[in-house]
Nucleic acid binder design. Structure first.
Lengths: 155, 155
DNA sequence: GCTGAAAGGTTGCGTATGCAACTAAAATTG
DNA sequence: CAATTTTAGTTGCATACGCAACCTTTCAGC
């Protein structure tokens, strides 16, 4: 085996090039790479809170707030106040967003196919599964670091 | 198979949590996540140009310039003018950097082990190999997009 | 050897992100 | 039910990054 610490390098390269690709691809729609993931969530389940998205994507709620605001400004989503919890908003797709749903999904699929070009079906499946497990491990580790920290300050 | 476009989600989660972990881990040394990759390059080969690093990591030369400046400010590297090419600098590690080389490598290995927790040796190996191929595919695709663009403007 | 193109670096600007601090509205608890 | 804690969201600040424009220096072609 090579140096174990080399994994992060490829990960970081894939991430940065995904950023470049998605930014260029959706620029003509006024959508940045950072907003796509929220649209993808909404395509699955429309009308959720920002908190829900933050939890679903394991992303900071401040980042959610800004991404949703940008999408709202561009006319892709609207915020409706939650009827029984006045702290929360529910986020809904507009027709403008629904109109480009298929384009977005097509490009996302295209990018995944690009990344896994030359992979066998099995390798493609394995790649996704291993990445999912890595994501789970990453989240668990960082959360355990935070627990340690909050226990310390509580003493 | 699930939706193909789901791969990017895990990728992005792993990347963001790597960012969080590495930022926290190296904060006490005055080193950010963004500088680590350059130190790793220098641990392999000391005394290279910024251009070399940009090529090696497929990273923008402006980002290299800023990361190296930060490392220089913190006393981890020095820039020496290239003796035969007055445009270029050669970047060398200081003793301060060499003194924490083992710590950095240890933490990087630890993080990789965390990400691949519960993986068999074969899965760990596969994960690294598939990521490497994905990175290669990503770079190739974006470069081909740029070629198309420059051909268009040249006409 | 000039001239124009290419290469190495830097800086300005914009985006995506995390963290900390904040507000306002629930929810919990004594 | 009043006081405290938690939750949903926003804003300020800092970091990492890409792209474009720029400056020097080097190189290639004539």
């Amino acid at each position: 085996m090579q140096q174990a610490h080399i994994a992060g390098r490829w990960l970081s390269t894939v991430h940065r090039y995904s950023y470049i690709f998605l930014s260029k691809t959706f620029a003509e729609y006024g959508i940045g790479q950072g907003q796509i993931k929220f649209l993808m969530i909404l395509f699955e389940q429309d009308g959720v809170t920002q908190e829900h998205m933050a939890g679903e994507l394991n992303i900071d709620k401040a980042t959610v707030a800004r991404a949703i605001r940008k999408l709202e400004t561009e006319g892709y989503v609207i915020r409706k106040p939650h009827e029984s919890d006045r702290r929360a908003n529910l986020i809904f797709l507009t027709d403008k967003a629904k109109g480009i749903e298929s384009v977005i999904k097509k490009e996302m699929t295209h990018w995944t196919e690009t990344l896994t070009h030359g992979f066998s079906d099995e390798e493609r499946q394995t790649a996704i599964e291993l990445l999912k497990r890595m994501a789970g491990n990453a989240v668990k580790e960082v959360e355990s670091m935070e627990e340690v920290k909050s226990n310390e300050t509580a003493e």
